[in-house]
Design a protein around this nucleic acid. Structure first.
Length: 184
DNA sequence: TTGGCGATTTTC
DNA sequence: AAAATCGCCAAA
């Protein structure tokens, strides 16, 4: 299967979010490839998006989100869970896509239905902050052909009621009918 | 230096 | 419905 090139990520964030659905996340640990299919994501559109961390501006924490596309923005939430984002658009944009749920394919143990759960199951944590997603260790693959056409459902993002008019925008996307989506 | 809080998950 | 748990960041 072809690995997604950096150019894939250097595009409009909503476009990338849509196209990430059905792609395969790969993390190599001790020669073992943990693989899972992305079934749910959320788009964060930069400093103007009040739900995005980058709305706070360039800080030590958001540095990776303002970095070049095709890298990982990992953060710790509620003091106990890691979340993985894919950085999109040209360097400095502060945009990215949160991976919220994946479907296990190979070498995966445990629940993957939720942003904190999928990072745990994939073995991803702060060590991967700013990590290159075009690397041998951590990258994404495009299936040669979809087993079936993917239907995308849009809905408001989870857990951002404070973001005022941005709270209700339909920037969460998931694969219609997939059982590994984090919520009904 | 300090205090409030969060792109969550689990349990009561 | 509420706890668990800690790094980030704005304010002082």
């Amino acid at each position: 299967m072809p690995r997604l090139p950096r150019d894939f990520y250097n595009r409009d964030t909503v476009t990338v979010a849509h196209e990430l659905l059905g792609k395969i996340l790969v993390h190599q640990i001790d020669g073992l490839a943990r693989m899972a299919r992305i079934v749910e994501v959320e788009a964060y559109l930069g400093p103007g998006d009040l739900a995005a961390h980058s709305a706070r501006g360039l800080t030590p924490r958001t540095r990776a989100m303002f970095g070049p596309p095709g890298h990982a923005y990992v953060y710790l939430i509620y003091g106990m869970h890691h979340c993985l984002n894919v950085v999109t658009e040209p360097e400095g944009s502060g945009t990215g896509v949160l991976l919220r749920a994946v479907e296990p394919i190979a070498n995966i143990e445990g629940n993957t239905r939720g942003p904190g759960l999928l990072t745990r199951a994939m073995g991803i944590d702060k060590r991967h902050y700013g990590h290159d997603l075009c690397s041998d260790e951590l990258h994404l693959l495009a299936p040669l052909h979809e087993t079936q056409e993917i239907e995308i459902v849009a809905s408001p993002r989870i857990g951002v009621p404070y973001a005022q008019e941005w709270a209700d925008k339909p920037l969460r996307f998931h694969i219609l009918g997939n059982r590994y989506v984090s919520r009904k």
